[in-house]
Every structure is written in structure tokens, then in C-alpha cells.
Write a protein that binds this DNA or RNA. Structure first.
Lengths: 137, 137
DNA sequence: GTTGTTGCAAAGAATTTGCAACATA
DNA sequence: TATGTTGCAAATTCTTTGCAACAAC
């Protein structure tokens, strides 16, 4: 894994790298699954760092908005996962929750072709695969 | 559009075709966009039919579970849309909300190929395109 | 009659907002 | 110092549950 400079990532997103934000992003970066605001709040709280739930919510929204995090719906809650800057898709393990990024390949052609035939002006698309990962299968 | 027998659809889903359920499914069938439980509740209420919010929620969950409805996340709310029985994907207009079903085409190949290369056992997948429909573009 | 269904009121749960104290550039 | 940030408490909102009355088979 490439070294990750959390403070720089925050600055790039237009956010001051405060102690709390760094703690949130560090925790997300260390995870291989998507985490919810509540997950992060308990996790940070256990580790003693005093970060408020409100701050966790605000940090996550801002980072998702900035494209630093991908979002996933998980049983009525919003999950967040660190992601690469380039466009990508996901392989989500329904058992352990691990999320792997994968390239779109044929999906991108499908999007173009489909949009053209329906005269649809594409602004974005999303394609995810759910199942069991190598370890859980 | 093929004629739609709402009571039969309900029975197939293992639900008694009560007045309230028929009203809910009728309203969904008449819509070209995904509707939330709250949407449906107000709509049915305006039309005078007395259907409780609880019933709307319960009907929607049951129908989604039975595969009669597709679900979409819309700003923290769950949207529901009538769907065909066969596997399909969507074209969602971000302006007017219209949802069109489309076939997967290359997507299906991509899913197989990707899963194989990552040794992933697929249980489902989802691919949706967002943008402006013909009329809104 | 038996079993499924409804809907109110209350409970639950996630998320947002107001605002005064605080930290950073 | 000016502006961005925090976090508590309260408010919002969506959704679920308990339960007694009711409807369908």
C-alpha cells in the first residue's frame, strides 16, 4: 500500500487537518471494510480520543463530497470507505464486509452504448458486485 | 405496457390483496419514478383513501422482498419502483427522477470475468446509470 | 373461527442544526 | 484577530414495534 499522508489529504479536500479529523481519516484508512459514523465514533471513543459524533458526521460528509471516500448503504446506515481518485467499481463481500476496488472494463462501454441508444446524458454510474470474497467463500 | 393485475401480483407475493395494499401497489404501478413510503402515504391520503403509514411501509418491504419492487436510495430515504421479474439494470434521471429498465449486456460478462480473476463468489450485482433523460437533457 | 392485516401511538435509530467555547492560520 | 471547527443538547426524520380492533379466507 502506498504511504498515505492524511493531513495532506484533508487539506486537499479543503479541510483543516485537526486532531479529530486526522483521527477519523486514520481509522478509515486502516479499515478494509466500509465504516459508518457510528462505527467510527465508538471506535475512536474506545481508543480514548475524544471526537464528537457530530464531528465524525461532518468529516465524513465533507470527505465523501471531496471524493476521498466512497459511500455504501448498509442497512439504513451510510458506510464510508477510503477510495482511489480514479473512477472504479467494487467487489463487496457480504460476509466479512471487505471492499475491493476493481476496474470497470466492459462496464464503461455498456454505459456509453446504453446511454446513446436511450438518448440519455450520463453524469455518473455505479456498478458493484456482491458475494463472498476468496477467504469467506 | 402489459396489463397489470395488482391483486394477482400481491397473491403471488404471498400477500392478501387488501384494499390498502391494492391502493399502494396501484399508486406505484402508475408512477414512472421511484416513490418513498412517505410519498405514497401523502399521495394516498390526498386521494382520500385511508391507508396508514405503517401499512405502506409493511407493504413496500414485503413487495421488495418478493422481487416485485426495486429499491433505490434517495437522500436518506428508500424509494420503490415496480420492476420486471427478469434481471435488469437502470437508467435514472437525476432531474425528473424517471427510472428506465435496461439490459445488462456487457455488464454480465464483466461481472463473471472480474469475479473469476478475484476468486469471488458472486451472489448479486447492481449497475445503474445516472444522468439526464431525453426529455430533461 | 382462525389466521392474517391494519393503524394508532410510542419507541428506536440515524442524522442535522443551533450555538457558545475553542483552535488555527 | 478573523475565520474555521468542535461538541453538546435538542430537534428532525425515517422506520419499526406493541397491541387491540378488524377483515379475509
Amino acid at each position: 500500500m502506498a504511504t498515505l499522508d492524511v493531513p495532506v489529504l484533508l487539506r486537499r479536500a479543503g479541510l483543516r487537518p485537526t486532531t479529530q479529523r486526522v483521527a477519523v481519516l486514520d481509522a478509515i484508512a486502516a479499515a478494509s471494510t466500509a465504516l459508518t459514523a457510528q462505527d467510527l465514533y465508538s471506535q475512536l471513543r474506545e481508543r480514548g480520543g475524544g471526537t464528537g459524533l457530530t464531528t465524525v458526521y461532518r468529516t465524513l460528509s465533507a470527505l465523501a463530497e471531496a471524493g476521498v471516500l466512497d459511500t455504501f448503504e448498509q442497512a439504513g446506515e451510510q458506510g464510508y470507505r477510503l477510495c482511489s481518485a480514479d473512477h472504479h467499481h467494487h467487489l463487496v463481500c457480504v460476509q466479512c464486509g471487505v471492499v475491493e476496488e476493481v476496474e470497470g472494463g466492459e462496464v464503461e462501454d455498456w454505459v456509453k452504448r446504453t446511454a446513446r441508444s436511450r438518448r440519455f446524458r450520463v453524469s455518473s454510474h455505479r456498478a458493484d458486485i456482491y458475494g463472498r470474497c476468496r477467504r469467506c467463500a
